[in-house]
């Protein structure tokens, strides 16, 4: 397996809290890696570090073996790392369709003078993505008026619209009803497999992790406590005691 993203000895501290305390982690091409751990253990901070939103006080992040630690989020996004957020990040004053078309247009750069965003090619691709997540009926809706669960799906669709090589998903099933949870993951993972996109997802639902992750990393207090196949990790007594009981 080829290593796609690798973090080496990452450190960052917020006041007295060590959100990353010597983190070493990698994700291979085509792999679905899940991160689990208690709230406040540094999982989202790790995603922020990988995408250039914050910079570590020590350590490096590599993409294809090249350091990306000091690059801003937009440059890292252009290198093929997309992100969906725990709290959906949408353009609230614009329609769902425009949200998607803007993401699609950004792949080619925005400096296309005289060409409308609503051109058929962008519209068709956006509608296909929305249809995949059963959101086609939301296309003309203002993003601000969507219920939380649907905002979450739009946020994920925006990340996929970038056609990334790696997508970072921060609690993709939070805010989604229990009935829709597995349907969402089936759709999402199916689309990722088809497009050969790797995924790193932070998740609290152990059933989701067990079913969809190739490998699990257990986080505690800014460190990797355990990692391995889900079936093995979930039998680890320390994980059961410290994480699964409270995850």
């Amino acid at each position: 397996m080829t290593v796609l993203l690798e973090a080496k000895n990452l450190h960052i501290t917020f006041g007295a809290v060590k959100a990353a305390n010597g983190v070493d982690l990698h994700i291979d091409e085509g792999e679905f890696l899940a991160i689990i751990g208690p709230n406040g253990s540094g999982k989202t901070t790790f995603l922020n570090l990988c995408t250039g939103y914050i910079r570590p006080s020590e350590g490096e992040v590599y993409l294809d073996g090249k350091p990306i630690t000091r690059l801003p989020p937009r440059t890292i996004a252009r290198k093929g790392i997309a992100r969906a957020f725990q709290i959906p990040q949408l353009f609230l004053d614009q329609t769902v369709l425009t949200n998607l078309m803007l993401a699609i247009a950004s792949r080619e750069g925005l400096w296309q003078v005289g060409k409308a965003l609503g051109r058929p090619a962008y519209r068709d691709e956006a509608m296909a993505l929305l249809a995949m997540f059963n959101l086609a009926d939301c296309a003309p809706t203002l993003a601000s008026t969507l219920p939380e669960g649907r905002r979450k799906l739009v946020d994920i669709a925006i990340a996929l619209a970038l056609k990334p090589r790696l997508v970072l998903l921060d609690e993709p099933t939070s805010g989604v009803s229990a009935l829709e949870r597995f349907a969402l993951m089936e759709t999402l993972m199916g689309a990722l497999r088809q497009a050969k996109v790797s995924a790193l997802f932070v998740e609290h639902d152990m059933d989701v992790v067990e079913r969809y992750a190739d490998r699990v990393v257990v986080w505690e207090a800014g460190r990797v406590m355990a990692e391995g196949k889900p079936e093995a990790v979930f039998k680890d007594a320390r994980v059961i005691e410290n994480v699964i009981g409270v995850a």
């Binding site: 937009r74 992100r83 990040q89 803007l102 950004s106 970038l162």
Partner: peptide
């Protein structure tokens, strides 16, 4: 933030 994460 979302714009930056779109590479814009």
């Amino acid at each position: 933030i979302r714009l930056e994460y779109l590479g814009i």
